[in-house]
């Protein structure tokens, strides 16, 4: 399943931030989004994940194929690592969480309440959720925040394995993951501020 984005225009708080964005994400491929803070990467990923509607443009192939991970991991501190993962596994209708635990080296932690984990361990738990969703397209927003070098490598390995199985990944990140993939700079797609005289329904 490939994700096709055509001429997408997205807005944050009613103000267009990125315009004219087009790309295709084929199975087995990863795409890194780069751009300065506030350039609209998070908005773009949320739009692609279906959390907010775009202003214009088409997105194809994204329905029920995307697993999204944002800045927060959605982890319940009073549930154990296993309980947290099992919950998401059953929401997405998959069975096994052992792969996910293994890929992110969480096996020793699996009976600990998630609230007792360190920030990096929590992040690993959040990322391991992607593996239990069973969905082909991963949409990840700053996945490596608070991860150490070893964990970043662990994450890169998981992404590579996912790509190897015909999955794809769209990642907004500032660091080099060592993946063999294309990089999309969002800077050139910055939306031009609308003309000031044009005073219509949108007030801009």
């Amino acid at each position: 399943m490939s994700l096709v984005i055509t001429d997408l225009c997205i807005a944050r708080g009613g103000i267009p931030v990125l315009d004219g964005l087009s790309f295709t994400l084929e199975p087995g491929q990863a795409l890194i989004l780069r751009g300065p803070n506030g350039s609209g990467k998070t908005t773009l990923l949320r739009t692609i994940a279906g959390l907010q509607p775009p202003i214009s443009g088409q997105m194809e192939g994204g329905e029920d194929t995307i697993a999204y991970a944002g800045h927060s991991d959605g982890i319940k501190p009073t549930l154990t690592v296993t309980e947290n993962l099992t919950f998401w596994a059953s929401v997405f209708g998959t069975k096994s969480i052992s792969n996910a635990l293994k890929a992110f080296d969480l096996e020793l932690l699996c009976d600990r309440p998630a609230g007792e984990l360190s920030a990096g361990q929590k992040r690993r738990l959040g990322l391991s959720r992607m593996l239990v969703t069973g969905r082909p397209i991963w949409v990840l927003d700053e996945p490596t925040v608070s991860l150490d070098v070893k964990s970043v490598a662990m994450f890169a390995t998981a992404v590579r394995a996912h790509l190897g199985q015909g999955g794809s990944a769209l990642i907004a990140t500032h660091i080099d993951l060592g993946l063999d993939c294309e990089v999309l700079e969002v800077g050139p797609f910055k939306a031009k501020p609308p003309a000031i005289e044009d005073f219509d329904g949108g007030f801009l």
Binding site: R46, L51, A67, A69, G70, S72, G74, I75, W88, F92
Partner: peptide, 10 residues
Amino acid sequence: DGSLDLLATA
């Protein structure tokens, strides 16, 4: 904690 975002995409 972001669970609602994730539930909305589930």
